[in-house]
């Protein structure tokens, strides 16, 4: 069997369009998910049972259920309540919730690893508790968890291929569509795989660059 290079080249523009959707979803989800993860982490550290127990249950459930099921549940839940939400949004929400559940404990550990003296120093300077959190703790925690955020982003990017099942036209879906008309799965899926690979490569390189920058601040 010969490889149809023309097909790959001809398909590249629409594949790239799909890749852009994949990238958009993943970036949106990592931002929303990390912020939500931070909120969950704060819940876990609150010391209040009424916050900790539900948070634990939520995390435990999300980590114990396949992501594809989570996508279906989010997607169907909205329509169940009569909400016409685009599949794209459902996908991003499912991705964000999933990564939030995985990040909560990482962020919690990050916060706990900041020496207590730093809060005290801030309080002593008359900085409020909320400001301490935002200006002193969070930037440090962020630097600490940067490597795991990278891992999460790579995971998200890979997981995002599953939103194709709820008809989001992402890279995977575009690939499927081309295959269904061209009947050339080998070329197309290899091209799709390589595009995912390259995006992940860019993410790890970018994060390495950021880590170096962050290290310089310490």
């Amino acid at each position: 069997m010969d490889i149809n290079v023309d097909l790959i080249i001809d398909s590249l523009p629409i594949l790239l369009k799909g890749a852009l959707v994949t990238l958009q979803m993943s970036l949106l989800a990592i931002v929303i998910g990390t912020i939500s993860g931070l909120v969950l982490a704060v819940f876990l550290l609150s010391g209040k049972k009424t916050l900790i127990v539900p948070t634990r249950i939520f995390i435990n459930l999300l980590r114990g259920i396949p992501f594809i099921i989570q996508i279906f549940i989010v997607y169907f839940s909205f329509s169940n309540f009569g909400l016409e939400i685009p599949a794209f949004t459902s996908g991003v929400i499912a991705m964000a919730l999933n990564t939030a559940a995985f990040q909560a404990d990482i962020i919690r550990a990050g916060i706990e690893s900041i020496p207590k003296g730093q809060h005290e120093a801030a309080f002593a300077l008359g900085i409020s508790k909320r400001q301490t959190m935002i200006r002193i703790l969070i930037p440090q925690v962020f630097v600490k968890i940067l490597p795991s955020i990278t891992n999460e982003l790579i995971t998200l990017l890979k997981n995002s291929s599953l939103v194709s099942v709820i008809a989001v036209v992402d890279l995977t879906r575009v690939g499927q569509q081309i295959v269904s008309t061209s009947y050339r799965p080998a070329e197309i899926y290899i091209a799709v795989a390589l595009l995912y690979f390259l995006m992940n490569l860019a993410i790890s390189q970018g994060s390495r660059y950021l880590e170096r920058k962050a290290a310089a601040y310490r």
């Binding site: 291929s161 194709s164 995977t172 690939g175 080998a186 899926y189 290899i190 995912y196 490569l201």
Partner: peptide, 11 residues
């Protein structure tokens, strides 16, 4: 490790 499992399965 850097490509989606779904695509691997498709391949």
């Amino acid at each position: 490790r850097n490509t989606p499992f779904l695509i691997q399965v498709f391949l």
